[in-house]
Design a binder for these strands. Structure first.
Lengths: 167, 167
DNA sequence: GTCTATAATTTGATAGAC
DNA sequence: GTCTATCAAATTATAGAC
């Protein structure tokens, strides 16, 4: 039913995580999915709509992944580390919110808002888990940074080596 | 003499660190500097040329800043932390190589090469300083990540809180 | 829902005068 | 070195037929 919507969002997520918001076009998404760009606009009127929807879904999926790990007894820090590791190893791509975060202030307001929500979520959860209000920013920084460096060196194992003490 | 060249590179660096490689145009640079885009092409034939030159200069300036700190007695890890902090607080912008790193593989080859050189430099120097081959990736990850998170939350102090134990 | 067609703008880049 | 003029291509987005 809504499989077409999913196809579009999947293609958009892959493209954004590869090249960023300014690095993909509606025509590319359309080609990936096998339709025309006008049809993509039918589902998402503007580029900002599409990117914001993808960012929201990413955050919700991320949150659910962490919750699953915690439900099976994993400590919260390890669960967040595991969720980042999964995002990196599943497809070798950067964190969606990480790349949107660095692309910065020229992005549409709704996209920026979703990214900030992702960061706030992680910081708050990790602060609560540790009782240390510096722990949230520090752990999120390590995880985003480990993805960034691993990606720039083209070596996933760098993420593991830079975060193995968090297990 | 070459002040025009510097003006162009300064404008390009600011734009890239704000919005990335795909987020700036020759016309914007030209407007910033007060000339026409054709004149920018005179100095840098292609966009890849300009970005690669800016990335190389960034790395060299970064390296010199670290060397200065070390010459005045600062330990190497603190010196790297200080150089990142300076880059962030001078203008509130992201690390140039950090943003180019996440924009990824669709960038022109010469630009990717400069970014990788920056990361390799940091990793190697920090590995040597600690005698631990995991320390380089871990420290670079923390510094890049702290900038990323601080930037996405619009709060420079997050960088300090996430890295104060490295002083 | 998807298409064709197209508008309006921007982009990276070049040619040639001064 | 900088300009005007221009190009070919790509971009976001819309109108309207099917």
């Amino acid at each position: 039913m809504t499989e077409r919507l999913d196809d579009i969002m999947n293609a958009a997520e892959r493209r954004i995580r590869s090249s960023g918001y300014n690095g993909f076009s509606f025509r590319e998404i359309a080609t990936d999915v096998g339709i025309k760009s006008a049809s993509v606009h039918y589902h998402f009127p503007t580029k900002a709509d599409l990117a914001a929807a993808v960012a929201r879904r990413y955050r919700e999926r991320f949150e659910a992944g962490v919750a699953d790990d915690e439900a099976s007894g994993m400590p919260r820090i390890s669960a967040w580390r595991d969720a980042f590791r999964r995002a990196l190893s599943d497809d070798g791509l950067m964190c969606l919110c990480g790349i949107l975060a660095v692309e910065g202030d020229n992005l549409p307001e709704p996209v920026i808002a979703e990214v900030r929500r992702f960061m706030e979520l992680g910081i708050e959860r990790l602060n609560n888990a540790t009782g240390d209000e510096d722990a949230g920013p520090r752990i999120m920084a390590r995880l985003e940074g480990a993805m960034l460096v691993a990606r720039s060196m083209g070596d996933t194992r760098i993420f593991d080596r830079a975060t193995e003490d968090m297990l």
